[in-house]
Amino acid sequence: MTDKTMKAIWNNNLDLEDTAVPAPGPDEVLVKVTAAGVNRADVMQREGNYPPPPGVTDIIGMELSGVITELGGDVARQGRWAPGDEVAAIISGGGYAEYAVVPVGQLMPIPAGMTLLEAAALPETAATVWSNLVMEAGLTAGQTVLIHGGGSGIGTHAIQVAKAIGATVIVTVGSEGKAQRARELGADRVINYREQDFAEELENSVDVVLDIIAAKYLPGNVRVLAPGGTLVIIGMMRGTHGDLDIGALINKRARVIGTNVRRRPLTGPGSKATITDEVVKNVWPLVEDGTVKPVISATLPLAEARAAHEMLDSADSVGKVLLRP
């Protein structure tokens, strides 16, 4: 049996190839993929700027939903999962495929009331948002959070989670369409970065900044932090080297954190398994009662992965783009 996979070629093309179906290791399961989420990190990997961790397949894709078809030996002995179970998962690579192997600690049940297709929009966004806003930055009710990229998959999910926590939510966007959708999702204030300087508008007033831009926004992000504030950088869309005002950081007693989910350990403190447990415990109930809803911009066939990547930069695309094998 062969597995059709979307493989990244470093000339920026995406080629659909047939390979052998991967075999799960002792602590893994094999999942028949229903849909895979498209993320900015996928684009970076395609361009050769974000290689997978050592030992991980070069097939792109860091989140999926699907049905378990095979259990590794240790997983079978544990008795928690069985063939036929519907699951969502974060993975370090391999999602753009008909079949993918998933470490057992990164499996999550499908939230009640969700279809398998809808669930594909949740794993990476939920893990990224909860681990960074809550587990890293400690966002609590009454605080103010600034979310850059409010129309992205991360942004649309973060707005809803932050509002559920009880925070005041400010977002930056680049189009009126994305601004309107951010307001509909609960954003208290929307700043069009093409028309306004967010740093000037928000100086010394933000408790937590969730940033996907990096270098270009670094001075402005530090400027908007309130005393004791936290800047969490989770992306590198606009460079990796920027000017940091150490004096301002010290005077504000502020923190700058750089983090991602992909390169965390599988188990142990701060691991992917810990994050998925926290997501199931804290985010899934919000999804099940309708407080947090997946925002899906488009669903495309796997063979149109390049078009899916291009949609991430579209002014008309709001939320997640999904691929179906």
Rank of each mutant, 00 (worst) to 15 (best):
T2I: 15
A8V: 09
W10S: 13
N13R: 09
D15Y: 07
L16K: 08
A20M: 04
P22Y: 00
P24V: 03
D27Y: 11
E28A: 14
E28W: 01
T34R: 11
A36Q: 01
A41I: 05
M44S: 03
G48K: 01
Y50I: 07
I59W: 09
G61K: 08
I68S: 13
R77C: 02
G79F: 05
G79K: 06
W81V: 10
G84E: 01
A88R: 05
I91S: 05
Y96P: 06
A97C: 12
Y99P: 10
Y99G: 09
Y99V: 01
V102D: 10
Q106A: 14
L107I: 08
I110K: 00
A112D: 14
L122R: 02
S131L: 05
N132A: 04
N132S: 07
L133M: 04
V134R: 08
L139M: 02
H148D: 07
S152V: 10
A158E: 04
T168R: 15
T168C: 13
T168F: 03
T172N: 13
V173Y: 11
S175P: 10
Q180D: 15
I191K: 01
Q196H: 15
E200D: 09
E200F: 11
L202N: 00
S205H: 07
V206H: 07
A214V: 04
P227M: 04
T230C: 08
I233C: 12
G235N: 12
T240C: 02
G242S: 05
D243G: 07
I246Q: 10
N251M: 14
V256K: 00
R264Q: 06
P265K: 09
T267V: 15
P269W: 05
G270R: 03
A273M: 09
A273G: 07
G290M: 11
S297A: 13
A298P: 06
T299E: 02
T299A: 09
L300R: 09
L302W: 08
E304R: 12
E304K: 13
H309N: 04
E310C: 02
S317D: 01
S317G: 00
